[in-house]
Amino acid sequence: MSHLHIPDGVLPGWLVLAGWIFTALILAFSIYRVRNTELKRKIPLIGIISALMIVCMSIPIIPVAYHINLSVVAGIILGPAVAFISIFIVDLIIAMFGHGGITVVGLNTVVVGAEAFIGFYLFQLFMALMGRDSIMWSSGLAAVISLILSTSILIGVVYVSQINPEVVIGIEEGHPTEDTQEQNIQEIPKELVKGINIKSFARTILILLGIGWILEGIITAFVIKYVSRVRPDLILSEGA
């Protein structure tokens, strides 16, 4: 569990819809980027990387939902565009197992896709700075940093979920004053008061996921090292 899958029904509809639109746009751009690539080569790679992510997610490392997800491995091997397509496929399939909500596949793809995207560019950067012999360090560090950043995106998504877009864009008739807002809040029964305590949420997931980042970083480093030795053509050659 190096990241958190958002379940159904916890985020507002407008944010869920925004997630789908954002994912659709990135998917369209990714498909446009790979339009000239031969599908005969890309499809088996997408298939095997996506399947590997699903299989690894099904192996609990520590009991209770702790697993690796290999999103950075996907980013390094497939390149950011194809990796995003692969992650969308993974999120769609695992949502059918109840692993992450089906309505929030868009948002989950954005969060996990960001890991692959950031991981790929950080890996390229570290390789350029430290040289090709540092493949283990480059991939491991890229994994840890991209997981930290994707978790920050998740916290950001949850934070944004508390904002009412109608109030932000001023759709409501007249702008509510502090007095009327206070009055409205007092009228709502306590059990129906919405809102996630962002500090508490961030603290909980940062504690839970910290171990996962390190573990995922180490595993990513060894996997990339192994693949670079056995099939170096799978790394750094595709880059779509």
């Binding site: 180490i218 060894f222 192994y226 693949v227």
Partner: peptide, 9 residues
């Protein structure tokens, strides 16, 4: 991890 790499290849 090497096993996962082997699985991938």
């Amino acid at each position: 991890s090497s096993g996962i790499g082997l699985l991938l290849v």
